[in-house]
Design a protein around this nucleic acid. Structure first.
Lengths: 233, 233
DNA sequence: CTTCATCAATCTGTTGACAGTTTTCATTCC
DNA sequence: GGAATGAAAACTGTCAACAGATTGATGAAG
């Protein structure tokens, strides 16, 4: 029973010498965690990993310490490191932080909006409407992600962008991850239109409120889904 | 010329064996950085540190990787780790993030306010008013810090609390740190009163706006101070 | 059959050493 | 006098090994 199912990415590690082995390992571990190949709660065995990657334990320990600071794993003394497992309460807390950050991004973006960007965002929302009508969730999800990413990436605050990504990533550690993506497609996209209008108006305050509310409503949908799921247990 | 001027804290490290050496070192390094004993831009020498702390380089490397992920130091391959140095732009970006987080904390707190907490917060603002009248900045600063901390600590979101602290700490890496603390004392405390009223009203939206604005205005005061300082150069 | 104690195997915490790179500094040349 | 050069010192990247803790199994006692 191997922890890592596919080691095809390892070759990349040895080839690239311009970047440190530690950070390459960290990236690879982060990928394994975010894709779910290393499931939440699983213990990460240093020896297994070092054998798998063909390195010593040192760089692996450094990489896991970095991941610990990022909140992706948990280190317990003399017992090892575990892929962090998010409770429902943790996920809800993250939604509040995300709402705050996304609202701020909306405000900043509204105050530096360009016609080209507005056109691109509008195009994305139109496309999402079309996909939502077909009810195709698997197609909707990446579009939705790209829409949000474009907003935060364009707001002009790189610190905010990094933090936003950190928290969106952390949500991958939520066991009932499917619930996160739940909720009505059409409803969500209606909120997108409200955000678009606020961004187009150039009113930062208004944009902040609409963007904040969009995440707050997603949080509500998550809570409702969790409650419904609990009833069905 | 020793990097670490005082090693009185080292004894604590060796005594406590319940916690890992790495995390103890990390805490100590973080303290040295936040207090300014290790100034921004300074290179951290692994060998010197290991001699100073009486350990090998391994745990120190792990601690610095963790600090890197937290954004307190910067690691350059084959050159070493450097205490991170924040530019004016970085500081301004952090203010936006902090405003978003603090506003969210205000909203959450308004929705779970208690009479006891309101009384305590009011007492603090009254005390700050008294101190501000005397114009004693050194006395005002810790009170101000405690007021903000109490708000974020009481909002009920531990994730938000941790993030908020992380960013407030990061501001210590700003070289012109004195400017951060600048601005009118009385003006700032007037904003505190507006926050108090919003918190007392239980109106989350209103509380979020007042709390957000308080940090946004502090950011403006910082920008004004930087500009003024630049003119005087 | 269950529970507890003991012991072996496994894994983490830490250390010291070696290899390769960067920096420093003395020397040489213009 | 100042810039270029080259060797030596210093430092980081990585590794292998040892010590201590934890886990799991084995066997005895109730």
């Amino acid at each position: 029973m191997s922890i890592i199912s596919d080691s095809a990415h390892l070759s990349d590690l040895s080839v690239v010498k311009s970047v440190s082995l530690t950070s390459a390992l960290e990236k690879e571990l982060e990928r394994l965690i975010l894709t779910g190949e290393l499931e939440p709660g699983v213990r990460i065995n240093e020896i297994h990993l070092s054998n798998r990657f063909g390195t010593s334990r040192g760089p692996i320990r450094e990489a896991t310490r970095s991941l610990e600071a990022k909140g992706l794993v948990e280190v317990v003394r003399n017992r090892g490191v575990f892929v962090r497992r998010l409770s429902v309460e943790d996920a809800i807390e993250i939604y509040d932080v995300r709402a705050a950050l996304f609202g701020q991004a909306g405000r900043l973006l509204a105050e530096r909006m360009t016609d080209g960007l507005l056109a691109e965002l509008t195009r994305m929302v139109d496309e999402m409407d079309a996909v939502a009508e077909r009810g195709s969730f698997d197609d909707y999800y990446p579009l939705n992600l790209g829409f949000h990413n474009l907003i935060v990436s364009s707001c002009g605050n790189r610190t905010l962008l990094a933090e936003y990504h950190r928290f969106v990533n952390k949500l991958h550690l939520f066991r009932a991850r499917a619930l996160v993506q739940g909720g009505g497609l059409a409803v969500s996209n209606r909120e997108h239109r409200a955000m678009l209008e606020a961004l187009a108006s150039g009113d930062g305050e208004r944009a902040q409120v609409t963007h904040w509310r969009h995440v707050a409503l997603a949080k509500r949908r998550l809570i409702a889904a969790v409650d419904g799921h609990a009833r069905n247990d």
